[in-house]
């Protein structure tokens, strides 16, 4: 997985704020001019268990989307469209509210071990 982004507020349109800036260079009164730029700060590495989607069982009810505290479930045209692993913190609520058990929570360590084993084989 690519390293997670800690970009000090560098959003889509503005220059970032870096720790070495002095007070004159910071925004006036600590204002933040770009709404929703927390989206560029990635919390995915908090996760110890990862939600995995089971396509056959999913009925696209979007209850998982409704109960995700991190807005980390994508939907397009009213259909489930994958997890946002860059922000998902792995709380496991989606797997618990899913009426058809279409989401499995899998340990990140296990995934890493499997990946390592595969790489060693090659």
């Amino acid at each position: 997985m690519t390293p997670f982004n800690r970009n000090f507020g560098q959003g889509r349109s503005r220059e970032g704020i870096t720790p070495d800036m002095n007070w004159r260079e910071l925004t006036k009164a600590g204002n933040i001019y770009e709404p929703g730029n927390a989206n560029t700060y990635e919390t995915g590495d908090w996760r110890t268990i990862r939600p995995m989607w089971n396509e056959e069982r999913c009925i696209h009810c979007l209850i998982c989307w409704r109960y995700c505290p991190d807005a980390s479930i994508f939907s397009t045209d009213g259909k489930f469209d994958g997890f946002d692993y860059k922000h998902c913190k792995g709380c496991g609520i989606c797997a618990n509210v899913c009426p058809t058990h279409a989401i499995d929570m899998i340990s990140e360590d296990e995934i890493d071990e499997q990946k390592e084993a595969r790489e060693n084989e090659e």
Partner: peptide, 8 residues
């Protein structure tokens, strides 16, 4: 997403 509330 990207806020720093606890998981869950």
């Amino acid at each position: 997403g990207g806020h720093r509330l606890c998981a869950g």
